[in-house]
Structures are given as C-alpha cells and as structure tokens.
C-alpha cells in the first residue's frame, strides 16, 4: 500500500517479518516480541519495531537508539491510542527515527497524526493525495503546543500550522 511521507508517496523499502519467519537481510520490521533477535542481527540492514496499541512505548527505551522505525497501528480510526504512543516516543524518548502508522485512519486525522510526531502513513490504494493535502492545509492555527514545536503565533498557546 502507498506510503505517505512529507506529503509525497515514497517507496517503502521495509520488509514486515511475521512471527516464525526467518530474518532476511535488508530493512526489516519485527514485532516487539522479536526485538532482541532483531538487535542481534548486526550490520545486515536497518531495524524497525511494530508496536501494538496495548504495548508500552517504554519497553523500547533501551533499544530505541538502534531503531530506525517504530510502526504503530490503528485497529479502527476511533481507537486513538497510537496518538499517545507516537507523542511519547517523540517527547519522552526523544526518538528521532521514523514513526509510522498503519491500519484504519482518516485524512481528517492527518494533522493530528503529524502533530503527535507521526512521519509516515500507510494509506489505502487509490487514495486521492489532494484530500490528504487539503486536510493538512485546511486549518492554519493550533491552540496547543505539540512535539513539532511549531512557531508560536504570539498569543497564549497558539501556534502557526503553516505547511
């Protein structure tokens, strides 16, 4: 499925490895349960971890400097746990790699995702990029700070959301 990053569709070079599958070379995404196995695979490509909505971000704390990607999931768009996971990866653990979301979410949530620190979105096939772009540009001011540290507008907590 298309991968949206910085407003563009980009090539997804990551391989998702399920439980029980052998670890290939290249950039791989592993479930949290295979974290130490992945860390032991030195020098054969980058490592990313898939975190389920009920798994704690803090379990990645030690490993985080060696990860390039954390992938979060929306089982349904109404389940907003990934917002908190993404924000705490950025704010508490200062994770500078990619934060990806998969599953069911809407263009209407795009700006919220970005403001919580998500940088990559796996979106449905045939998605109209214009709808996502519009969702991003629609609202130009926010009323609270975010991990993006947007430019203060000058009054109270207001921030400019200029693209």
């Amino acid at each position: 499925m298309p991968l949206l990053e910085n407003g563009q569709i980009v090539q997804d070079g990551w391989t998702l490895v399920e439980d029980g599958q052998p670890l290939p070379d290249g950039d791989i995404l592993l479930p949290l349960s295979r974290l130490s196995e992945g860390l032991g695979r030195n020098g054969k490509g980058r490592l990313g971890i898939v975190l389920k909505p009920d798994e704690r971000v803090s379990d990645l704390k030690e490993a985080l400097p060696r990860l390039d990607l954390v992938s979060l999931n929306f089982p349904i768009f109404r389940d907003g746990r990934a917002f908190t996971q993404a924000r705490s990866l950025r704010e508490h653990l200062h994770f500078a790699g990619a934060v990806r979301v998969t599953g069911h979410f809407l263009p209407d949530q795009y700006e919220f995702l970005l403001r919580c620190g998500v940088s990559q979105l796996v979106i449905p096939e045939q998605s109209d990029l214009a709808v996502w772009q519009q969702a991003h540009e629609r609202i130009t001011v926010a009323y609270q700070p975010s991990v993006l540290n947007e430019r203060p507008e000058g009054f109270a907590f207001r921030r400019f959301l200029t693209p």
């Binding site: 768009f77 109404r78 389940d79 907003g80 917002f83 908190t84 924000r87 949530q109 700006e111 919220f112 995702l113 403001r115 919580c116 609202i139 926010a142 009323y143 609270q144 975010s146 109270a156 907590f157 207001r158």
Partner: peptide
C-alpha cells in the same frame, strides 16, 4: 477559557 482553547482540536485527545 484556557482549557477551552487547549482542548480545541487537541491532536492527541480527540479520539479518546
């Protein structure tokens, strides 16, 4: 009012 502004379209707390 401060809470109203802070909670308006809060990116993290809109799908509680």
């Amino acid at each position: 009012e401060i809470l109203r502004q802070w909670s308006t379209l809060h990116p993290e707390f809109t799908f509680l």
